[in-house]
Design a protein around this nucleic acid. Structure first.
Lengths: 339, 339
DNA sequence: CTTATCTTCCAAAGCGCTTTGGAAACTTGG
DNA sequence: CCAAGTTTCCAAAGCGCTTTGGAAGATAAG
């Protein structure tokens, strides 16, 4: 079923049918009605390739998709992507994955220079900002999830990562803790460094400088969390509280505590940042895990909305968004017992 | 840079330039050379939309992407997708996600009927086979990861799920175990049922019928694994061995053992099916986890290859592939001690 | 040298849509 | 009743590529 046939069937011109379907004003109410009914009946669907060729826009947004295991191949990414795809669909955009393996951005370059996508989303950038430089040189609009320090000439959605660690650290201090260690993410991420600063500043405020090694860094998996927690909790100057960058890390830390016969919420206080991974509810930890919470799926949705507004003509200046994470107090933290 | 300009620049016709670039035989060696050099120099990239319109093919493969948490929003899916996207890129296909939320297949229908995608990949089908019926009614080629019982009129890649549980169960029996329970996946999946049968048959061979409740079913997450293992291992007729459908479940089972003061590989033997999730290496479990192994990422890659061959004209009959999983013996299993 | 056969190239016709620049019919105000 | 809008429709020109159906020149065969 093509436009042409539909038009013939209706005894109208292609122009009129096209404009009726696309909501232009120069077509009468009755005609519009008649057209859309016929279109539905005959199951007419415009051929997207043709429309794209004619308009120059593809209604597809590309996502740089790191396929190597060193990067973001993890549940956090899936969640983000789900939210993005969901909202994008509502705005009639499709999401195209552009597999990038390591430093090989060939795929991305291809979909960009062949006009396959209207815009690129960078779901994960490292501190170097090279991904941003690359996409910028390709001269295509883009939106970033996260940020690169000292550089903000683009549209982005990020959370206030400084607060993500500052808040719980401050809270733990208020509860009497002094030996507070962190299980943080990979060093080459901006959010990791922001969180690190938040923790350092909170400690500095009461004149504490954390012992060497109190800041552990690794990929955010259960296994790494377990390993880092085991190491930290076996030290002579054992921390009384752990602040984790992900509930996955916290899950590993819980396992370490259990193995070391330490009771979470009594011997060790634990908090984490909660991206709300669907299979790992902080509430159902035992004891329930105190968290700074910010849904990464909602972030995906919001990015899709930002993309939409960007393509509708808003400036990147007006599309920089920073979300605050709320601190939820739960039984995994407790005041420090005098020992 | 368009074909037309490139042709003018070279003093050739569009036809010749197009055919030179696309490797047709009716263009001389020197001309072809000259054209491809110029194309590279001027950074010419064919406009994909135009090519799609002209050829009728989009070189995009659609993936039905379930965005609701009840389904496959988990690391297994990401891994699969990574493999798929990677190999697809090698064959010059792009991967487009079609978000489907619950039973709402609107997105899929749209990309299909608007000719946005050449083919659809179903990464996850339930036992009802309704996804297959739907896609079939859309009259578009499709490839399935997995299978639906009693129905195999389509191209698919699956693993021999019967063996996935039969093999380890048999091995555990050989080691003297009799009380063998399973931590299986969701009931509405074909692989779950196949595995169930494999386990039942292995037991039946030595005349055992498992006690009620020895077959536990849930989503394949660490938390569910923990819960199911806790329940099973707390029974009066405690199983001496657990066969798990995923390393994530096994990870939860390990935690349960640790909590119950049971030593894996001594008090309880555990095996699992290993999809080779990158952040959860069976080898680095403590003790190392015995598994049936089959990389789900490799499966993604293979599906992309199947897609490629399908679109090149092979029949679905010739594209039905079943992989065997190999059984790897490790310290998480041990002969049953006489008690 | 003529005829048949390759080899190499090209003009032009689409692919299915959007959009421009009117034209025709219908209203309105004077 | 006429001129000046308004409203509603349409013919035709692209968008940038592929593909068909030759044509011209070079080569081989008779």
């Amino acid at each position: 079923m093509s436009l042409k046939k539909l038009a013939e069937h209706l005894g109208l011109s292609q122009t009129t049918v096209s404009r009726a379907l696309n909501g232009y004003s120069d077509v009468s109410k009755e005609t519009r009605e008649r057209v859309s009914i016929a279109a539905k009946e005959l199951g007419y669907r415009p051929n997207e390739s043709a429309r794209r060729l004619a308009t120059g826009r593809s209604n597809i947004i590309g996502v740089a998709f790191p396929t190597d295991e060193n990067k973001l191949v993890d549940p956090h990414f899936t969640e983000f992507l789900s939210g993005l795809a969901e909202r994008a669909a509502e705005h009639d955009y499709d999401v195209l994955l552009s597999a990038t393996k390591g430093d090989d951005w060939k795929g991305l370059k291809r979909v960009v220079s062949s006009r396959t996508v209207d815009l690129v989303v960078l779901p994960s950038v490292d501190v170097s900002g090279e991904q941003i430089s690359l996409v910028k040189s390709l001269d295509i609009p883009f939106v970033v999830h996260g940020r690169v320090k000292d550089r903000n000439d683009y549209a982005f959605l990020d959370i206030d990562n400084y607060q993500v660690f500052y808040q719980p650290t401050k809270m733990l201090i208020d509860l009497g803790h002094k030996n507070i260690a962190i299980l943080n993410g990979p060093r080459n991420r901006n959010y990791t460094n922001e969180r690190l600063r938040g923790w350092q500043d909170a400690l500095a405020e009461i004149g504490i400088e954390a012992p060497a090694g109190y800041d552990a860094h690794a990929r955010m998996t259960e296994a790494e969390g377990f390993a880092m927690a085991m190491e930290l909790l076996s030290r002579p100057d054992r921390p009384t509280a752990l602040v984790c960058s992900s509930t996955l890390l916290a899950s590993g830390a819980y396992r370490a505590c259990s193995q070391l016969q330490l009771v979470v919420g009594r011997d060790v206080s634990i908090t984490a940042h909660d991206d709300e991974l669907p299979f790992l509810s902080a509430m159902s930890f035992d004891p329930p895990l105190a968290v700074t919470r910010s849904s990464i799926r909602a972030a995906g949705r919001e990015v899709a909305s930002i993309v939409n507004r960007y393509l509708l003509g808003e400036s990147w200046q007006s599309l920089q968004t920073i979300w605050q994470a709320e601190l939820v107090y739960r039984a995994s933290v407790a005041p420090l017992k005098a020992s």
